[in-house]
Each structure stands twice: as structure tokens, then as C-alpha cells.
Design a protein around this nucleic acid. Sequence first.
RNA 1: CGGGGCGUAGCGCAGUCUGGUAGCGCGCACGGUUCGGGACCGUGAGGUCGCAGGUUCGAAUCCUGUCGCCCCGACCA
Length: 506
Amino acid sequence: MAKKEANAISPTRAENYPEWYQQVIRAADLAEQSPVRGCMVIKPWGYALWENMQRVLDAKFKATGHKNAYFPIFIPKSFLEKEAKHVEGFAKECAVVTHHRLELGPDGTLIPAGELEEPLIVRPTSETIIGAMFAKWVQSYRDLPLLINQWANVVRWELRTRMFLRTTEFLWQEGHTVHATAEEAIAEARLMLDVYEEFAEKYMAMPVIKGEKSEAERFPGAVSTWTIEAMMQDGKALQAGTSHFLGQNFAKSSEIKFLPESGELQYAWTTSWGVSTRLIGGLLMTHSDDDGLVLPPRLAPVHVVILPITAKAEDPAAVVAYCKKLRDDLQALRYHERNVEVEVDERDLRGGEKNWSWVKKGVPIRLEVGPRDMAQNAVFMARRDLPPGEKQTVPRDTFVNGVVAMLEEMQAKLLERAKALRASRTKEIEGKADFYAYFGNSADEAAASQSGFALVHWAGDSALEGKLKTELGVTLRCVPLAASEPGTCPFTGQPSKQRVIFAKAY
RNA sequence: CGGGGCGUAGCGCAGUCUGGUAGCGCGCACGGUUCGGGACCGUGAGGUCGCAGGUUCGAAUCCUGUCGCCCCGACCA
């Protein structure tokens, strides 16, 4: 017998959270480091998660009237230069293509040749190039609203990368819309924020707070940026999605103009909104435990894995057949907009090892099915939301009839657990000293502290935000859309309309 | 770009201080015994020690340079 290990993942969350995060990715086989600096390879299990996210979000975008399209990965440098704040925001992190040919050098190496007249920027986001096309597509109020979404990869040359949370290249969707009025554009941006919120809570089981970004945290070139902010298990905030009201800023830089029903040619109003593969990092840090990944059933690539136990069977083929019949019966069931996904794992591995591999991958339900179970027409069931050893025998029919409800119960439980954690690490703070104490009084201490969200009244500005960031390492995550009572800002002594959220963030 | 750590077999590491031609665990392949909580025995494959110079009879080890990775900052979805 093997020695018993307490946990599948080492170190545990408590011991070293960042290292734990990386080990979970490795143990679940979600992704791995690539030969290219800052870029990861998303492996099948991780990509399947992304595909499930895409499937759900894509349907929601279409249900709200958006169409998919695709725009070039290369953006002429001059396009990016059109909007001053946009340039300022992205210039520092752009990959630039300057040549279009390689020539064989004397020493066998390849030398870039054929210098481009105008450098091309690998898109860090597509507002400018999409704007150039929208300018052609929009002539009349009859062309509006124009509601487009693109699934794409983007590149931001970040100084420091972390798998899924911040990589040089990442996958995302970016919605871009054009409207006749500011009101309509704002409504669009807010609608998509609601879509993101619903997705985060109902599918990812990740509770989020909708709010507006401060000027300092706003998207470069936007008039308003709204966000969904989630709390990870270490108490840090994760910006999980953003939606921007761009005013007429990009319409002006891209010349998106239209003739209204009555009156003169005018600039249109635009929005953009996006979520990325960062959501996978958020999902991981919301639910996973010291035994690896924990997946919310609604996004799990596999709901039920069946492990045939054939070693002692007189007739192994009969056990496998029993498992496959069970799989077929389960797969005929509908669970939340799709069929129940079942995998029979016939790999030639020892039972314990095989079982643990699925624990680490986060599959909601594991079934060990051997001759004993077959004889009594039952299954031996383990749930990912219970300790790995807590397994029980369940009559086959009871399991089949109850599996959909069980998945829903697990989904709900994950959301409740995440909400409880957030509540336990959210604190209303009234005084400046309390605020500093909450975050450990210094940036170093804040990194190690058990802090979370601080709800504090606020009448400060960007300079004050900068000061708090320097001193404590915390940022103003958002001004929640949900109203709170008026009060007094502890930093300025000025009256405050409502509380804002400060936290350390990813 | 600043501060710290690290590049040795697929993974995790020892060996580096005190130079002598590479080792351990896991994994992998094969054979056997096992198997419902991460098995065991045996045999075997697998490494130009990140890269480039230098010192030396001899470099994983010493020197110089360089590339890359991780953690903490600054910056950011």
C-alpha cells in the first residue's frame, strides 16, 4: 500500500499561494510554459474549458443582437497614433513588426529583410482598426446600432507574466458597437456588463461586483469603464471583465460619422467590452483546493468520469460493457443547455493513480465501477466537493435519476462557498488608521496580510490613489453600481456619496 | 527596469565552496507479482550539465559575457 498523502498539491494554498496556483495548472494539465517568453501553451483540458466559456458567451452575445466578425491581427502604427490617450496606454506594451522577409545569412542564420514602410503593430486591442472599418460601414442612422464581436488573440508585452492571468499573448473576445446616441451606447456597455455578471455567477459560480473604474484605472481612451471584480481565495481582487463607453473619442479619431434622421452629419458613439482566458485563472483561484482544480459543473468539460475496476473481475469485458451502458444512459440526459458529458477511463493505470488524476482535473463526479457494483446494480460514487476518500455506493438508477440535480446542487454550493469567502474578507472601514491597519500598514505587509476588500468612503483623486498604491500596494477596484449610504471620506474629510472598494489586485 | 532565487535526463533535485569526465527520486519501456485510497521486485532506455568565450593537462564545478525562467516591486485584462 502506498503511503497516504494529505493533499495532491504541494505547496498548499496556505503555504504558498502563487506556487500552489502554478502547481494546480500543472496537475490539472491545463497549460504549460512555451519556448516563447511569457506565452503559454493551452493544453486540451484547459482549452476545453475555454471552449465551454466561449460557447456560453457566444450564445449570449448573439442573443443580445451581436454578430461575429474578424479583423486583422496587424494594425498600422498610424492607426494607433490617432487617439492620444489610447497611444499613451498601449505604447509601452506593443509588439512591432518591421520586416516581411527573412534572408539566409552567411553563417546559416536568418536575417530580417524587406523593411516595411510603415511598421505594423500586433493588436493589443482592436478599437482603431475596427474603427477604420466601421467608418466605412456607418453612413446613416439606419446602419445603427452596429453590434459586432470578435474572438481573437491579442498581444500585450507585459513585463511580468503569470499563466492565464497575464500572458504576453492571450485569447479573448472583444465586442465593438456603434450607436446614434450616448444614452444608447451607455445602455449597451451596461447591458454587456450584465451579461458578464450573469456568466460569472451562473456559469463560473464566481460572484462578482459590478462597478465603475476610477479615472486612474480606466481604459485608455474611454469615457467610462465598468468592471466585474471578483475576489480570489487569497483575498486579492481580479478584474474579470470590462465594458467601456468610449464616448465619441474613437468615432472622432476614426471618423465614424452618420447622418441622423434629421439634422447634420455627426459623430457616432461607440463601446467596447471584453473577457479573456484570464477567466480560467479566476475560475481556478475561486474554487480549487489543495487537491487541485475544482470545476463548476456548468463549465466542466466532463461531468462524470467512470473508472472501470476490472482487475479482479471474472469477466472484465462485462464490467466495461456495464460502464459504457451507464455512460450512454447518462449522456442521454440534459444538464443545463447541453448533454451530460461522461468519460469512461479505460487507461491501463492503477486505480489510485487514475482516480487522483481526475481529482486534480476537477471533474465533479467520479464513479468507480467494478464487479461488486455490477452485481448489485450500483455505482461507487465520489464527489469533487467532498473529501477524496468520502465515497459511497449508490443504486445505479438512483444515481442516473439524480445526477442532474446533483450537478446543480454542486454548482450552487460552489457559488455559495465563494460568496461566503468574499463576505468573510470584506470589511467596511471608517477611519484612515483602520484602513492602513487592515492592509498591514505597508505594501510588504499587505502582500502577506489576510486582507480582502475594504469598503470605504471616498472623495479622493488619482493622486491619492497613487499614494495608497505606493504605500499599501492597494488600488481602487471600483465604485460599486449598487448604492450605499453617503458618508465622509476618511482620507480627505470631504463628503462621499458612497463607498468604494479598495484591495490588492492581480 | 530594480531586488531576490534558479538553469544538471520528461519532472523534481544532489553534485559546484575544495576542478578529475555525472548521480538520486519520480516518470518512461519490458517481464513478473499486484489492483475498490497515489503498489512492489527485476531489467533497461534516456543528459554535448542554458549558451558562448576564457583559465587549465583536465571544467557541471573557477573567471567573463550572454540568454532564459520563477518570486517580490514598478506597469497591466
